[in-house]
């Protein structure tokens, strides 16, 4: 089974420092074994945050000299996990939509990391995360304009021409409202679909982000999903969100969903996940959890409903690793 040329990897978790000591009791560490695990307790693949594995080395003047891997416990855990399970890389700092030059040395370092971990692909978000040489360490939204479509598509083509690993683009959550018409020449689904098509890029579909955006911006998440080129979906993200209230300038209270990755996946998001799988068939699916991270047993419990939906909708009951 494959999606947009990428293998179906099953259901996985993000590899986090909090689980470095406990992960090993939940995975089969015998390389080469045929694994067909569908019970609670199974982790089919892990996603490594690129920026948690690679860091800049600085020269005596405090300038970037290159990239080095995080050593110590991180290096040990990454190596051990990659020996046992399929691995994918996920980034938050590539700034795919930014105007600063694409950081090709970072792409090369990501490739080298991917080779060391035998990663299947790498991904990052449709956003800007740096501007004018300043790293913002957040995913800032892009305007839905023809200019942005052309800019981002060209950047992804450049990225794909340079990188050895396949690249997937993720749809981010965003909170800016009622943009000026100059910033919203098309709807979000059209913006994303045009970039995917123009750059011939795979999609990491974050279903929680779709739900959060649809709620915050008042559109139908199913219609959004149906408007995307779903044949390009090679991975899915699921995560939890929080509801937060704000006071507007007029004194009114506005409630927004915030994509916090700090909670179990909400039921409407799981329903939307089923809607996606009905249209795509089995897709490698990863549960993200980055804040208030629970212990691994609890995380694995959260995979149970995800697996149940995968099995109910697609009939897939196992992944066999070579």
């Amino acid at each position: 089974m494959s999606r947009f040329g990428q293998d179906f990897l099953g259901v996985g978790l993000g590899l986090r420092r909090e689980h470095f000591e406990t992960l090993w009791s939940h995975i089969d560490e015998q390389p080469g074994s045929a694994v067909a695990r569908r019970s609670a307790g199974a982790i089919d693949f892990v996603e490594v945050l690129t920026e948690n594995a690679l860091r800049e080395s600085l020269d005596a003047d405090g300038q970037r000299a290159g990239f080095v891997p995080f050593g110590g416990r991180t290096a040990l855990a990454l190596d051990r996990a990659a020996r046992a399970l399929p691995t994918v890389l996920h980034g938050v700092s590539l700034s795919v939509g930014g105007l600063d030059p694409l950081d090709l040395p970072f792409v090369e370092a990501t490739d080298a990391l991917g080779e060391a971990l035998r990663a299947r692909w790498f991904s990052d978000h449709l956003c800007m995360s740096a501007a004018h040489g300043i790293e913002l360490h957040d995913l800032l939204p892009l305007p839905f304009t023809d200019e942005a479509v052309a800019h981002v598509s060209a950047r992804i083509r450049q990225l794909q021409a340079h990188a050895k690993l396949p690249f997937l683009l993720e749809n981010p959550s965003y909170y800016l409202d009622a943009w000026h018409p100059h910033h919203r020449e098309m709807d979000e689904a059209t913006f994303l679909a045009r970039i995917l098509e123009d750059s011939d890029c795979g999609l990491l579909l974050d279903v929680n982000n779709v739900y959060v955006n649809a709620t915050n911006h008042g559109y139908d998440p199913r219609r959004f999903i149906d408007a995307l080129p779903l044949e390009r979906v090679a991975q899915i993200h699921l995560a939890g969100h929080l509801s937060e209230s704000f006071t507007t300038a007029s004194g009114a209270t506005e409630t927004l969903l915030i994509d916090t990755h700090s909670r179990p996946v909400a039921t409407p998001v799981l329903d939307l996940y089923a809607h996606v799988l009905e249209r795509t068939g089995p897709v490698s699916t990863l549960l993200e959890w980055d804040h208030d991270i629970p212990d691994l047993d609890r995380m694995i419990d959260e995979l149970v409903p995800i697996r149940a939906i995968m099995q109910r909708v697609t009939g897939v009951t196992g992944v066999t690793r070579p």
């Binding site: 957040d138 800032l140 800016l176 409202d177 009622a178 000026h180 018409p181 910033h183 300038a249």
Partner: peptide, 20 residues
């Protein structure tokens, strides 16, 4: 200038600062 509400723009200012 962006055609957005200050409150929602403020979410991003908070995020950028809070991460650091």
């Amino acid at each position: 200038a962006l055609g957005a509400s200050p409150q929602r723009l403020g979410i991003y200012r908070s995020f950028v600062r809070d991460h650091v």
